[in-house]
Nucleic acid binder design. Structure first.
Lengths: 193, 193
DNA sequence: ACCGGCATGTAAATGGTTACATGATTAT
DNA sequence: ATAATCATGTAACCATTTACATGCCGGT
């Protein structure tokens, strides 16, 4: 019933609210599906699971060790946990946290570093193109087995946010690369470093 | 000459590379100009200034205490500091850090929380509209006194990134609000909380 | 027999926010 | 006078990453 805990706990509660999962699986899902707007590390997840269990918001599911049972501990959310999750959903949204080192560098760079910035932006572009490819696969898959998740409508909204983000990254990269290529060409070879 | 320090130091070095500033002024500039992609707190800035000074990357400018002299300590970047800044500019860009709590909530919400999510998104929309207004002012001002900064071309690229970001936020808000308003209307009044 | 991926966890270090303390200057 | 803002700084706390330790399981 407490007001504001750390966010990791809500990621765990939120995912367990849909299906029973192990810590490892939680990490995988976050990496695969949420990583364009959220990240968690094992160093946060495992201790937090422990804490949530000790407070009775989640409970260990004793996996039957038959068949090809891996030795993973699965957890399920408790009624108390569901209540806590709902409370957090209602609470005001905290401001997003954003840190683009690439913009910092660009801001502090000058004409003589155009060539370097060009490389940075190209790398940035490549990274996001790759990431978007993976993301597109996930989206296609989700649109196939729609209604598997009770909240597919919401998930599609989140994905739409991602698509818009990437589209603006892509546009910006193209635009900036053109500008910088002109700048570099204009300067000729006399400037280095 | 060390490879990778914390980012706060480069924010300080980067800003001091353009003009001499006090810690307080650095904070103000970050808030005003960089806050859409970067933030710093006093608790980071002051200790970091101290460290940079002790390592000789920046130096205190003893302000003459005449006139309406405020008792602020201004700093200037040293040659060593400039070298360090240039090295960081060349180093590969680290992956951006992004955390949108609003997307987390939306992802974990379900049909019954549409009304709440609608409010969250409207608030998000309002916040960003306000922020963009301030930003537009800064951009207009910058475009007026162009060439005051040696790196105005780079700054305009950074601003363009911001504009694209905000445009995608705005589009997403509109789109999502419509979707959720339909959902809420469709459900009628029977569902609450 | 060995390697890669699955799986869980802890400890240390770092990064970052928030709250507090202090005092000067400026505007009302 | 007094409140707001300018200005510097520290300490405590909380969040996060990274490195490490350990062991299982499946494939080659």
């Amino acid at each position: 019933m407490a007001a504001n805990k750390n966010k990791t706990s809500y990621v765990i509660l939120g995912l367990l609210n849909e299906e029973n999962l192990s810590g490892y699986e939680i990490k995988k899902i976050v990496d695969l599906r949420l990583s364009f707007f959220w990240n968690e590390s094992f160093g946060q997840i495992y201790p937090e699971i422990k804490r949530l269990a000790s407070e009775g918001l989640i409970a260990v599911l004793e996996e039957p060790k038959n068949g090809s049972g891996k030795q993973s501990k699965k957890y399920e959310i408790t009624e108390q946990g569901k209540a806590e999750l709902q409370e957090w959903l209602k609470a005001p949204v905290e401001k997003e946290l954003i840190r683009f080192e690439i913009l910092l560098k660009l801001y502090f760079s000058n004409a003589s570093s155009s060539r370097i910035m060009l490389e940075h932006i190209k790398q940035f572009q490549l990274n996001h193109q790759r990431q978007q490819l993976l993301f597109d696969q996930f989206e296609a898959q989700l649109k196939q087995d729609i209604d598997v998740h009770s909240n597919h409508r919401q998930i599609l909204m989140v994905l739409s946010f991602g698509q818009k983000l990437w589209k603006s990254y892509a546009e910006w990269c193209e635009e900036s690369i053109k500008l910088l290529e002109n700048a570099v060409a204009g300067q000729g070879d006399d400037v280095h470093e």
